[in-house]
């Protein structure tokens, strides 16, 4: 497998470049004393808030954010509410949030949360056929509640423009179909397709997914690595982290090492992207893919 050819600095630079036109639209935050104090129990909602320029005061599992969401880095001063299965209610209550954002995943906490403050449940993932429709609705609903509808419209329009430009750049590259995987160990992968975030992005920017097998409700499937055997010409993209014994194990497998796409060195690695993310994660995934594919052409 090749190391990721794109250096971190360049990626961060590009990230800022991509967001900079949006930033200019945001009203100054510091002066906004009346802003709602919002706690988010869902990362996708938290990242959407960050994109709308309204930082949450507290989020769940903040300690792992930089490992799974990666970008944007979590701004300093956001309070960690603990594990998502074990929210620190005393802490949350002491913060006296105006609004608590929840998802269907923490539904069972609803009665306890309602003792603390107003809640708003937003479902990030619906198995809808229309890519991003759910995320757009979610962004608007959230923005309305935060009084940032205009920012949201600008953000969504910017995102659409961004996706369109990515699509144009992709069509110039004529990329191979991609196989998106997470290595579980030396013998198993999770492969993505169906109607998950990654698939939505691939469709939006015009990259075809080589995985035609079934996936579960969330758009992925756990399979033995032998299920990836194919004579099709494709590019395998593996998300980090890759367990350390995976590469040596695979190198010794004829089934793997003689695969056409392995022989042709069409295997790349991407940093993690939040699978249950919203538009910001989708934009980031699209950017990572296009940087990767363009980097390969050079």
């Amino acid at each position: 497998m090749r190391p990721n050819p794109i250096s971190l600095d360049r990626r961060q630079f590009l990230a800022r470049l991509a967001i900079s036109p949006l930033l200019s639209l945001l009203p100054a935050l510091a002066s906004d004393k009346t802003a709602l104090r919002v706690a988010s129990l869902d990362w996708a909602l938290a990242e959407t808030m960050l994109a709308l320029g309204h930082n949450p005061i507290a989020i769940v599992d903040a300690a792992s954010w930089n490992k799974f969401v990666v970008e944007p880095l979590l701004p300093a001063g956001i309070i960690d509410l603990g594990l998502s299965t074990e929210i620190n209610f005393e802490l949350l209550a002491a913060l006296k949030p105006d609004l608590i954002l929840t998802s269907p995943f923490v539904q069972e906490l609803e009665p306890a949360l309602q003792r603390i403050g107003q809640t708003l449940e937003l479902s990030v993932f619906e198995k809808s056929a229309v890519p991003f429709a759910q995320q757009q609705v979610l962004t608007h609903t959230l923005a309305e509640r935060l009084g940032r509808s205009e920012v949201a419209s600008a953000f969504l329009a910017g995102a659409e423009k961004q996706f369109d430009s990515y699509r144009a750049r992709i069509s110039a590259l004529h990329p191979l179909p991609v196989l998106l995987v997470n290595f579980m160990d030396g013998r198993h992968v999770r492969v993505y397709g169906g109607s998950g975030l990654y698939q939505n992005v691939l469709e939006r920017i015009g990259v075809s997914n080589a995985w035609t097998g079934e996936t579960n409700y969330w758009g992925y499937s756990t399979v033995g690595i032998e299920k990836l055997a194919t004579s099709q010409n494709l590019r395998l993209i593996a998300f980090e982290p890759i367990p350390p014994d995976t590469q040596p194990t695979l190198a010794r497998s004829p089934l793997w090492s003689q695969l056409p796409f392995v022989k042709a060195r069409q295997v790349s690695v991407l940093p993690p992207v939040l699978m249950f993310g919203a538009i910001p994660s989708a934009l980031r995934f699209a950017r990572l893919i296009i940087e990767l594919l363009e980097g390969l052409k050079k």
């Binding site: 579980m184 160990d185 013998r187 198993h188 999770r190 756990t222 033995g224 690595i225 032998e226 367990p243 194990t249 695979l250 010794r252 497998s253 004829p254 089934l255 793997w256």
Partner: peptide, 16 residues
Amino acid sequence: LASLFIWGSGSLSQQS
């Protein structure tokens, strides 16, 4: 961390 479940449930899947 699904791989822990996979090992806990014994998968015989092989590639060599």
